[in-house]
């Protein structure tokens, strides 16, 4: 599959933004990861393949310092597939629908992520403090609350907060993109404002 040159050059930016999101979280002391903004924005502007590449490269580079994150690359790639699909369905043009999309991303990141953690950690809880606290609060040690359910609830809860912030950031970035730039990207036409489209139409006439 051929990737346009603009899309190709956008991929490293998307990867860097995935990293920087985490960096800004540390600066603002926010309890979130915000490591999927680049993936979602690139997928929304350039389509599935560039988005999937951003997700894959982000996790490969992340694995340089923590190889364990390599397994979770699948989640980042799944974000790209969903983001490109929702972008084509114009979800990211509407703030309400954008917020709603965080449920899908949280389900992938938290729901499927918790299954992966569950398997990697030998059908037991992962190393997240939140998950362990959820388990204690909901029934351990003697209450018999299903351990996987604690993992699931804990991870989805953390991920939902994270993905709400992620999609809000993605929405405003997409909204702030200049038309001149959008017009060169495969799915950029979706985000060109009606006023700019009207100017373009009148210029053609």
């Amino acid at each position: 599959m051929k990737i346009s040159k603009q899309a190709l050059f956008l991929i490293p930016i998307g990867v860097a933004v995935n990293f920087i999101g985490g960096q800004i979280c540390i600066l603002t002391k926010l309890p979130a990861y915000l490591d999927a903004i680049g993936t979602i924005v690139v997928a929304a502007l350039c389509g599935t393949v560039p988005g999937v590449i951003v997700g894959l490269v982000s996790n490969v580079l992340n694995s340089l310092t923590d190889p364990n994150t390599l397994w979770y690359g699948l989640l980042n790639m799944a974000f790209a597939i969903v983001a490109a699909y929702l972008s084509k369905k114009l979800w990211f043009k509407n703030f309400g629908l954008t917020l709603l999309s965080s449920l899908f991303f949280a389900f992938i990141g938290g729901g499927i992520g918790s299954v992966m953690t569950w398997i990697i950690y030998g059908f037991d809880l992962g190393t997240s403090w939140v998950v362990n606290l959820v388990w204690i609060a909901l029934g351990s040690p003697e209450g018999g609350f299903p351990m996987f359910l604690a993992e699931f609830i804990g991870e989805v809860g953390v991920d939902l907060f994270d993905k709400v912030l992620t999609v809000i950031a993605s929405y405003f970035i997409l909204k702030a993109m200049p038309t001149r730039f959008l017009s060169k990207l495969p799915l950029g036409y979706i985000y060109i404002s009606d006023e700019d489209k009207a100017i373009e139409d009148s210029a053609e006439d």
């Binding site: 956008l10 860097a16 920087i20 603002t28 903004i37 950031a169 702030a176």
Partner: peptide, 15 residues
């Protein structure tokens, strides 16, 4: 505080 930091960064880099 997160958004005013990220938005100029990303848009500048993309341009």
């Amino acid at each position: 505080a997160f958004f005013p930091t990220l938005a100029p960064l990303m848009i500048g880099a993309m341009q």
